[in-house]
């Protein structure tokens, strides 16, 4: 299981976290949001996503909102392990 946490840190120090856990890179799983979530447009606040989509959206949000984007992951895709 891979757990990934994306953090957007705004220049004023506030931050938003998006966390999700994936069994496989193709799974669509719930995303939990925390922190100053009101600073993220609702259309971009994904309720669920796969690992690639979540990364693309958070990276893009960092650019458009002027926030620093950081991704920390733990674990592995057991389903695809060789």
């Amino acid at each position: 299981m891979l757990t990934t946490v994306h953090t957007l840190t705004f220049p004023d120090g506030e931050s938003v976290q998006a966390r999700a856990s994936f069994e496989s890179p193709q799974d669509r799983v719930p995303v939990s949001w925390s922190g100053s979530v009101e600073r993220v447009p609702t259309t971009s606040r994904l309720a669920s996503a796969d690992v690639g989509l979540l990364r693309v959206v958070l990276k893009r949000l960092g650019l458009t909102l002027g926030a620093e984007w950081n991704e920390v992951s733990e674990g592995s895709f057991d389903f695809w392990a060789e």
Binding site: L2, S73, G75, S76, F77, W80, A81, E82
Partner: peptide, 8 residues
Amino acid sequence: LAPYGPGT
């Protein structure tokens, strides 16, 4: 290519 297995 983490988080895939070591053979990837």
